[in-house]
């Protein structure tokens, strides 16, 4: 096979057949020029992904979360008035002050929420109240989990359904709940992070030598003990997380044996 730029790019993205991959890999191994190009392209890919995922570490603006929180009730009022005017862009950075409702204490050094729905609810159910109903949206420590992060080792090595307590997180427990493969043959894991004052459901996918957090949906005000470890991890119907998993998954989740094998192969 002649290595064109298209073939090389398809090789990088795992879009070739097994035989084609073997052929291309052989040619790359025997060509210093191709080896250098592949190395450069992989570095570029990782840098680009990392650059744009950097915004994940910035808290989601409270105004956006508020808008979604109030929908669809807010539209009943709006529809009787004029269509809302689009806000002007700012030319200087503004350090937005978040409303107290979004300010959730850091449960551990590894997780800081910015919020998205308390459990399955964006808006707490009318019957709920008190601390356990405190709502939050999305989360802050999304983005890239690299080898320097304690969570990296958990995602790399901890089997599903085996909780582990983070050394840096006090009583924070991480529980991987499932592993699955995506349409483009990457591995992703769903996991819960359960702290004393908050819990979260997360999905992260492995890319190069890091895990990219695809979504994190948290709830605050309920301790790990109140939630019950396994109930939190598997008992809640978290629609936002489920939607992300449905959008990514190819086939079924990996069995325990298959998961163990891929862990041993370092997710190759």
């Amino acid at each position: 096979m002649i290595i064109t730029d298209e073939i090389l790019t398809a090789y990088l993205d795992g879009e070739l057949t097994v035989d084609e991959i073997a052929d291309v890999a052989r040619q790359i191994d025997s060509s210093p020029e191709l080896t250098r190009r592949v190395k450069d392209m992989r570095r570029n890919d990782a840098s680009i992904a990392q650059a744009y995922h950097a915004i994940d570490s910035k808290p989601m603006p409270a105004g956006i979360l508020d808008m979604l929180d109030k929908f669809p009730e807010s539209q009943k009022t709006v529809s009787e008035e004029e269509t809302p005017t689009v806000l002007p862009f700012k030319t200087k950075p503004v350090m937005r002050t978040q409303a107290p409702i979004w300010q959730v204490a850091m449960a551990a050094s590894v997780m800081l929420f910015v919020g998205l729905g308390a459990g399955r609810y964006l808006v707490p159910p009318p019957s709920s109240g008190g601390a356990s109903a405190e709502k939050i949206l999305a989360q802050q420590n999304t983005g890239i989990i690299g080898p320097e992060n304690e969570m990296f080792a958990v995602l790399e090595h901890q089997p599903s359904a085996s909780p582990v307590t983070l050394a840096a997180g006090g009583d924070t427990v991480v529980l991987p709940s499932m592993t699955f493969k995506t349409g483009d043959d990457r591995y992703c894991r769903a996991y819960s992070v359960i702290g004393q004052k908050s819990t979260s459901q997360n999905v992260a996918c492995r890319m190069e030598d890091a895990w990219i957090v695809k979504i994190s949906v948290g709830s605050a005000g309920a301790s790990a003990a109140e939630n019950g470890l396994y109930q939190t991890a598997s008992g809640e119907d978290n629609s936002a997380v489920t939607a992300v998993i449905r959008g990514l998954i190819k086939g079924d989740a990996l069995s325990a044996d298959d998961e163990q094998k891929v862990i041993q192969k370092n997710w190759r």
Binding site: M60, F71, L116, A240, A243
Partner: peptide
């Protein structure tokens, strides 16, 4: 409407990037 809103919520991180 609530499911539609939840779909937007799930899309937020990607849309933000």
């Amino acid at each position: 409407a609530e499911q539609w809103r939840d779909d937007i919520v799930a899309l937020l991180p990607r849309l933000r990037r």
